[in-house]
């Protein structure tokens, strides 16, 4: 094999730099200026969600009838509500509720949706038809109507909001992952794995799922924004958090009556929702550009 070695010496001395997918991602991520800033904001929100209770200047539940409906000031950064509670502290508390509700619901929706999508795309046939027709039925309803219907069955409350959002999240993930699976299933490297005798579960887990992971991450981030909005809407309708809780949506409901006189009661949670949803969407957009550039124009 002497000749062989000689032939390849040069060709094999090329790869000196160690490629790492994480380094590569980081390099490209830093270039996404808008998304990068948005991700810093998201990070800040996550930190707030964790340490919130320890950094609030006031107790968010403690009424103070001496300072009702005061506008923003140095002592109350975002003003106070109709019970004199500090809105800033309540927003900080609300961050934890909003993020955990949306994250948990999207997470469960994504897990179930991904599994269904993988099954549907990989096996096709009867299972595929059942899963896809069911999700078509669910797609026929607007998300929020579907959520309201579910809560009508389960009763109001944050846990049920999580369930409702998770349920309407499932079909969109199922469809996304099914599409990606169909595409990856036809690639040569999956065929190669089959020719080696890899079991179906191994092909799905080792070859197909990692390929869909990028789109999954992008969509997951985007759906968090949607879920925050949905949770706020449900709370606003009185179907979610009970009126006393410092939930952003519930705060909007409470403040509705004072819209004319003390508009900050509504504007502050409104801004919180707006900024958070925007940030998640920007991060999602940026992730898509970095991880999944081919779906950019979809």
């Amino acid at each position: 094999m002497g000749v062989l070695k000689e032939e390849v010496i040069n060709e094999t001395t090329i790869n000196k730099s160690q490629y790492s997918p994480i380094k590569e991602f980081w390099k490209n991520w830093k270039r996404q200026k808008v998304a990068f800033s948005a991700s810093l904001f998201v990070l800040l929100l996550i930190i707030i969600a964790f340490v919130g209770p320890y950094i609030t200047p006031y107790d968010p539940y403690e009424p103070n009838y001496n300072s009702i409906l005061q506008g923003p000031s140095s002592s109350h950064l975002a003003g106070t509500d109709e019970y004199g509670r500090d809105i800033f502290s309540r927003l900080i508390y609300g961050t934890r509720i909003s993020l955990s509700v949306s994250f948990i619901s999207v997470f469960f929706g994504a897990v179930v949706g991904t599994i269904l999508g993988l099954i549907s795309g990989f096996f096709g046939g009867f299972l595929d038809r059942i899963i896809m027709r069911s999700s078509d039925v669910m797609f026929a309803f607007p998300d929020i109507i579907l959520a309201i219907a579910i809560i009508a069955i389960l009763g109001p409350g944050l846990v049920n909001v999580v369930i409702a959002i998770a349920v309407f999240t499932v079909p969109s993930f199922a469809r996304l992952i099914r599409g990606a699976t169909l595409e990856v299933k036809e690639t040569v490297f999956v065929e190669a794995a089959r020719s080696m005798g890899a079991k179906k579960t191994r092909i799905i887990y080792k070859h197909i799922f990692p390929e869909t992971f990028s789109s999954l991450m992008v969509f997951f981030t985007m759906r968090i924004g949607t879920a925050i909005l949905a949770a706020a809407s449900l709370s606003f309708l009185g179907l979610g958090a009970s009126p006393g809780t410092p939930d952003w949506g519930a705060m909007l409901t409470m403040g509705r009556d004072y819209l004319g006189t003390s508009s900050h009661v509504v504007i502050m949670p409104g801004i919180a929702i707006f900024l958070t949803v925007l940030a998640f969407n920007l991060v999602g957009d940026g992730l898509r550009d970095v991880l999944d550039p081919k779906t950019k124009n979809h």
Binding site: V3, E7, V8, I9, N10, E11, I14
Partner: peptide, 8 residues
């Protein structure tokens, strides 16, 4: 055997 050019 065919001749070949080493490297790339």
């Amino acid at each position: 055997r065919l001749e070949s050019i080493a490297g790339r």
